[in-house]
Write a protein that binds this DNA or RNA. Structure first.
Length: 764
DNA sequence: GAATCTCTTGTTTTT
DNA sequence: CAAGAGATTC
């Protein structure tokens, strides 16, 4: 293949970036300016033209999806598989390093990754043991504190107690938490990064090995790196020392930094030019390249985005432009409530599809995941296929995590967190009292729960009933542990075996609700997920394996399939489960939409308090508000052809009807770019002009109210008389769905016929 | 010890 | 409206 294939599809600035000769290159790439293309072509250029071995290239992306996509595109361009190239997220790469160098990282060989839910449970347990009132000090805040410390590279021992007067307990909890994780072989997300950083600092031979290995490091979404990630990169790239010959190539957009709440710092973009060039010789000095031509959106969409983001201060300065025509005006729709909003969106989708548009070109975006619900409801009603990204993901579901805990405990008896989770799930007669005895014994003898139980039974320190139940549990886990028997089960067989023995399916199957049924299905699906994982494997693992034979430092690569799968479950959390390729509308949060593009975009719930979120509005400094605005900028720039912005006058939140004003971001868009479907009232000073009267409306959620006499018993059926708080008594004349929670058409005595979502109604 | 009921409380975004 | 904690009953 010749060079023209790499360079021809690029404009001048893109080409300049792809061919950059500088040791360190910063690409400031506006939304839709071909950022990913530049990265992909850069790597192709390095391999094809500069004869850099893929073995010497590391590419860091923000999500696992982006990593897979990047690998795919490069291999497509070069028409050859690049198996030994490292492509992954910071977390994924750090995980790989720690598996390979677990000894040097002072970890146990089969350490397990815990998610934030597991982390919170551990902290609750520690705080309970310490006798700290969780009313006064919410565990969530402690969790936030610890993660913030780790994100900034600080261990409990490195913090100055003088800074914590009156809050010493924070340090104490942090310290105990570190100890507990260390002892039981658990690693949280922030710990992955911190350990990997410490690996560089404390094991110079490991660092040296990778410094010799990598000649090119490329980082995507650089504006969203946090302190520890930045430090990790800086150390790896040689601390600015001229003798290292590592080239860094980072791509980012300060206007799209939306992870400040997770410790990301936009400043890194600015600091990069300074930090990564001190040691470089003059001719190799840093190069900054701006990509400002947008190839994605129409002129109107782009102008709106520019106008909104212009309200932020402290930008690096960048103005997107396009050669494209103005396109259509942006549509603003002001809905009565969230149901009306969803109906509008669905109606527009039907129009689009009628004109021959594809559903997969459409995205419904929102600020918070809970907002997907009314849209899902409306789409189901109209038979429009859709797919929801994010929210509660597959491996985060309670029943799936229970199953994973069985696997974890069977693989590692020292995993106290897993032990506690499942000792009485499903219920097997081991109550709180017994668990407390075990916990206390373990603490006194400095044992793992597993050992403590054995001793308690031997010494007959448990009641006969409890002892039998606990003994049964121990035998159960031992039976699940396939490694004991010397049999060679495949991973799928192991998981199926464990799942069967756990009786989790029967446990949930007994309950006859839709929710319980879904749990059984999820457990079923877990087997399929294992199969998929087994078939596809982890490309990054492949990369490590392939290169392992080439040198000593990476010899210790661990490939225990069960541990691999559990790590995969924690890190990927189940993105991209099934249905991936069906032609369907995409629903996702604005955060998950970063990096994607769609022909037709609906930006929904654009209301003051929701977007910008109310938490951001309380911030006096305004930094949070600016991040919300960047989020808005990200949302607007996802659209290629057409953008609809919707907001509702009233919205059900925590079961109440709340009034809402249009978002201030709407008024930041020049009126000339917008067509309003209903007049937007920009009067922010009063609620007067907004009505909460839904009675003109044919469809509405029944307000459950919550008082005891509203509660439904049994099934709602046609012909039944029901009583609704607002509309009075009526008779059900039509129904969709099943159970007490269903959509029903009711003829009310005074209010006429209405469709209602009745979850709770009094049956008369 | 388990199941059920009652009450409070809280909710952004994700590796 | 959900989930979680605490109290009560079986």
């Amino acid at each position: 293949m010749d060079i023209s294939q790499i360079l021809d599809p690029l404009n001048k600035a893109q080409r300049q970036a792809v061919c950059s000769e500088a040791q360190n290159t910063l690409v400031l790439a506006g939304a839709g300016s071909g950022k990913t293309r530049v990265l992909v072509h850069r790597i192709a250029w390095l391999v094809q033209v500069e004869n850099v071995s893929p073995y010497s290239i590391m590419a860091v992306t923000f999500t696992n999806k982006a990593a897979a996509e990047m690998r795919f595109r490069i291999e497509n361009l070069l028409k050859t598989p690049l198996r030994n190239m490292w492509v992954g997220t910071f977390h994924g790469l750090a995980h790989r390093l720690l598996r390979a160098h677990w000894k040097d990282a002072k970890l146990v060989e089969n350490f397990q990754i815990i998610d934030s839910d597991d982390q919170l449970r551990l902290l609750k347990r520690i705080m309970k043991e310490m006798g700290i009132d969780d009313k006064q000090h919410p565990p969530r805040e402690v969790q936030w504190f610890i993660n913030d410390c780790k994100d900034n590279g600080k261990r409990s021992q490195q913090l100055n107690p003088a800074d914590f007067r009156g809050r010493e307990f924070l340090l104490d909890i942090y310290y105990r938490y570190e100890e507990l994780c260390q002892r039981t072989g658990l690693v949280d997300f922030a710990e992955l990064l911190l350990r990997a950083h410490e690996l560089w600092l404390k094991q110079p031979h490991v660092l040296k090995h990778y410094q010799q290995r990598f000649s090119h490091i490329l980082v995507d979404e650089f504006q969203d790196t946090n302190t520890i990630q930045y430090a990790w990169l800086k150390v790896l790239s040689g601390n600015n020392l001229p003798q290292t010959n590592i080239h860094t190539f980072v791509v980012g957009d300060d206007d799209q930094s939306i992870y400040g709440w997770r410790g990301a710092k936009i400043e890194h973009i600015r600091e990069f030019c300074h930090d990564f060039n001190a040691g470089a010789s003059a001719e190799k000095a840093a190069e900054t390249i701006k990509l400002e031509q947008n190839y994605r959106s129409t002129g109107n969409i782009l102008q709106a985005a520019n106008a909104v983001i212009a309200n932020n201060t402290e930008r690096l300065g960048k103005e997107l432009w396009t050669e494209d025509s103005e396109g259509e005006l942006l549509q603003i729709y002001r809905a009565f409530n969230e149901i009306d909003e969803a109906a509008y969106v669905a109606g527009q989708i039907e129009k689009w599809v009628d004109k021959g548009g594809k559903r997969s070109d459409i995205a419904i975006l929102y600020r918070s995941n809970a907002q997907s619900q009314p849209h899902e409801y409306e789409l189901v009603k109209r038979g429009i296929p859709y797919r929801v990204y994010g929210g509660l993901r597959f491996y985060e579901r309670a029943e799936v995590k229970d199953a994973l805990a069985y696997m974890r405990l069977a693989a590692n008896y020292q995993d106290d967190a897993a032990f506690e989770r499942i000792i009485n799930t499903p219920a097997r007669g081991i109550g709180l009292r017994t668990v407390e005895i075990i916990r206390a014994a373990a603490k006194n003898n400095e044992q793992f729960l597993w050992q403590a139980v054995q001793e308690l039974i031997e010494n007959k320190q448990l009641s006969a009933r409890a002892a039998t139940a606990v003994q049964k549990f121990i035998y159960l886990i031992e039976e699940m542990d396939c490694s004991k028997k010397g049999d060679h089960f495949t991973l799928v067989e192991q998981v199926a075996h464990i799942l069967e023995l756990s009786q989790l399916k029967q446990f949930h199957g007994r309950e006859n609700t839709e929710r319980a049924q879904a749990k059984v299905e999820n457990l079923q699906e877990l087997i399929n997920a294992v199969k998929r994982f087994d078939d596809e494997g982890d490309p990054l693992l492949e990369a490590v394996k392939e290169s392992a034979e080439l040198n000593d430092a990476e010899q210790q690569v661990l490939t225990n399939p069960m541990s691999e799968f559990l790590a995969h479950a924690a890190l990927e959390a189940g993105e991209g489960q099934a249905d991936e390729w069906e032609e369907c509308v995409q629903l996702m949060s604005l955060h998950s939409a970063k990096g994607l593009e769609f022909e037709l975009v609906f930006l929904t719930g654009v209301e003051q308090g929701l977007f910008p979120h109310k938490n951001a509005l309380q911030d006096y400094v305004g930094g949070k508000l600016e991040e919300e605005r960047r989020l808005c900028y990200v949302g607007i720039t996802r659209a290629r052809q057409q953008l609809h912005l919707t907001h509702a006058e009233s919205r059900t939140m925590y079961g109440r009807n709340e009034m809402a004003l249009p978002s201030q971001f709407l008024s930041e868009i020049p009126a000339s770019l917008v067509s309003e479907v209903r007049a937007v009232n920009n009067n922010f000073s009063s609620f007067d002009s907004f009505s909460n009267n839904n009675s003109s409306f044919s469809s509405s959620y029944a307000s459950p109210g919550g008082s005891a006499d509203d509660r439904a018993e049994g099934e709602i059926s046609i012909g039944q008389r029901v009583k609704h708080k607002k509309f009075g008594e009526g008779i059900v004349i039509d129904k969709e769905g099943s159970g007490a929670r269903a959509r029903v058409q009711v003829n009310f005595d005074y209010e006429g016929t209405k469709w209602l979502m009745l979850s709770i109604a009094k049956l008369v």
